[in-house]
Computed example of a mutant assay.
Amino acid sequence: MGPGGYGLATVTDMARKEAWMVTSPASTTGPEGRCVTFSFFMGQLGVESMKVLLITYDSDDPMQAITNTSIPLNFRPMTLWRRRQTTGGDWRRAAITYSTRQKHSIVFSASPDASYTRYRGFVAVDDIIFNAGPCENECLFDQDFCSWNNALDEDDFDWSLGWSSNKRGTGPAKDQASSLDPHVTTGGYAYIDSESPRLSGETARLVSDVLQPREEPLCFHFWVNMHGGGLGALRYRGAPLIA
């Protein structure tokens, strides 16, 4: 947005519709992904949610279909981020890492709350920035381990990178993001396999870089898929998360 300005959507009288603010079509991100950061502000009871969507196009030239309404524009949306709570009168900062092999756009969406149709509500966004590569401390595992490393002397075997599993009864067929869209067949993840020669009690440790201290707590968020016989536990700092 321009100096001193921001994008604003008011949900009053939207009648259950969504307000979309869409970027121009962009090319593939590559396996390294892309980071979008932005500031957002949500207020009043009339807002149901704010979402950031990734829409991928089937057309090789989506801009032609956008400018010429006689050409069908086919696209598929996927939710990357969603928030429902008010920001309490303050601007907040958010960062999202995503990747896609297709031409795509990013959508900022605002939705009214049907339970509070008589109340006002608004969503504002500002300072939208796109950068190549993942956001700080984030990893997609589509290309490599990013800033994560296998422990050198404190475990018995290593984590590996995978893109799909052909083993019946174990391993995800797709990574988390690709599993949301049947048309997407790429995307990586970090995994371990408990089959032979692994033994009961052995441990594989994946370690992040040293993180700098901050005044506010950090949120550690990840997707997990565990399936098949012979599994033990997934732990974080020695405390069992899933067993």
Score class of each variant (00 low, 15 high):
residue 145 F to A: 11
residue 131 N to S: 15
residue 76 R to I: 15
residue 43 G to D: 14
residue 122 F to K: 11
residue 64 Q to D: 14
residue 71 I to A: 02
residue 16 R to D: 12
residue 77 P to E: 06
residue 78 M to N: 11
residue 96 I to D: 03
residue 70 S to G: 07
residue 146 C to M: 03
residue 16 R to W: 01
residue 107 V to N: 06
residue 72 P to Q: 09
residue 118 R to K: 14
residue 116 Y to D: 11
residue 132 A to L: 10
residue 85 Q to L: 11
residue 107 V to T: 04
residue 42 M to A: 04
residue 141 F to R: 01
residue 133 G to F: 04
residue 138 E to Q: 15
residue 116 Y to G: 02
residue 50 M to D: 00
residue 63 M to T: 15
residue 101 R to Y: 09
residue 32 E to Y: 06
residue 95 A to C: 11
residue 117 T to G: 13
residue 145 F to P: 01
residue 93 R to T: 14
residue 78 M to Y: 04
residue 147 S to F: 10
residue 49 S to I: 03
residue 73 L to G: 04
residue 83 R to A: 06
residue 18 E to M: 10
residue 136 E to V: 13
residue 86 T to I: 06
residue 44 Q to M: 11
residue 88 G to S: 06
residue 146 C to D: 09
residue 128 I to P: 00
residue 19 A to Q: 10
residue 21 M to C: 10
residue 85 Q to F: 03
residue 124 A to I: 05
residue 111 S to C: 11
residue 126 D to K: 02
residue 110 A to S: 15
residue 127 D to Y: 02
residue 81 W to Q: 05
residue 133 G to H: 04
residue 127 D to C: 05
residue 27 S to I: 14
residue 6 Y to W: 07
residue 49 S to E: 14
residue 78 M to E: 10
residue 26 A to P: 04
residue 39 S to K: 12
residue 113 D to G: 02
residue 100 T to C: 09
residue 93 R to V: 15
residue 68 N to T: 13
residue 29 T to V: 07
residue 77 P to A: 02
residue 61 D to K: 06
residue 114 A to D: 15
residue 101 R to I: 12
residue 47 V to M: 08
residue 57 Y to Q: 03
residue 148 W to M: 07
residue 94 A to H: 02
residue 97 T to M: 03
residue 115 S to C: 12
residue 23 T to G: 04
residue 61 D to E: 13
residue 143 Q to F: 07
residue 100 T to D: 05
residue 51 K to I: 05
residue 48 E to Q: 09
residue 7 G to M: 08
residue 52 V to L: 07
residue 137 N to A: 13
residue 139 C to E: 14
residue 78 M to T: 15
residue 81 W to M: 09
residue 68 N to R: 07
residue 74 N to W: 10
residue 80 L to G: 06
residue 42 M to F: 01
residue 129 I to Q: 15
residue 135 C to H: 04
